[in-house]
């Protein structure tokens, strides 16, 4: 079973890597939270991660950029209470704002969105997020960087193997997202460009408790 799990983790890592997802193993949730905060701290150092506010924009679009808070902002809807306390402390120390709801008011830009995936699909490197909650959904859509935690034991070999689980999600009103890599387009001259409407970067932290000890 352990061999099987490590095989799926490795396949997930390879497939996700092939579509520009940054995959990191973490042993504990605390490590994952610290990683997400570090991503946020380091974020502006990378010029490629600019999301367009510095270019020539029409007035209404520029105005929305202006609404973006100057302090760095992290969104972490749907996190467990204990994790939130820890994250709040980490963000405070790093001078990062943290929100858990009302994300729609920050459409101008959230630096990092932190979420927990329901499960993963190994053969395509896909995250599956059951996100009927609007804030959770928005965290995966409007954040410039999306950091998702995925438990190693929650990786299915392929989508077919997860069909029943999906059907259970769909049994009431529901919004479920398959996320595979950052947002991308090739609509201009077929040149692949990352970060159109959604995140410019996707980090997947594979939480494998069995490696902790």
């Amino acid at each position: 079973m352990e061999m099987h799990r490590s095989g799926l983790v490795e396949q997930f890592r390879q497939k996700a890597d092939a579509v520009s997802t940054i995959v990191k193993p973490v042993a504990t949730m605390a490590e994952a939270l610290a990683y997400a905060v570090q991503v946020c701290v380091r974020k502006e150092a990378c010029a490629m991660l600019s999301s367009g506010c510095e270019y020539g924009l029409s007035d209404p679009a520029q105005e929305l950029c202006g609404l973006k808070q100057w302090e760095k902002l992290m969104a972490a809807p749907g996190l467990a209470a204990a994790d939130i306390d820890r994250l709040t402390a980490l963000c405070r120390d790093a001078g990062i704002g943290l929100i858990r709801q009302g994300l729609a008011a920050h459409a101008g830009g959230i630096d990092v969105g932190l979420t927990t995936a329901d499960f993963g699909i190994a053969d395509t490197g896909t995250l599956v997020l059951h996100c009927s909650d609007e804030d959770l959904r928005l965290a995966t859509m409007i954040s410039e960087v999306h950091v998702a935690v995925l438990r190693a034991e929650d990786i299915y070999p392929n989508a077919d193997a997860a069909a029943d689980r999906l059907a259970a999600f769909f049994s009431t009103s529901d919004y479920t997202a398959f996320i595979t890599g950052p947002s991308r387009t090739a609509d201009i001259e077929r040149v692949l460009t990352l970060g159109v409407h959604g995140p410019l970067d996707l980090h997947v932290l594979i939480l494998d408790g069995s490696t902790a000890s």
């Binding site: 009103s173 919004y175 479920t176 595979t180 890599g181 947002s183």
Partner: peptide, 20 residues
């Protein structure tokens, strides 16, 4: 496009929560 899967597949059932 030669992708194993697109970046996003969005599955929507019924009316979901909407702040707006």
């Amino acid at each position: 496009t030669g992708q194993a899967i697109t970046s996003y597949v969005t599955w929507i059932t019924g009316a979901n929560p909407s702040g707006a």
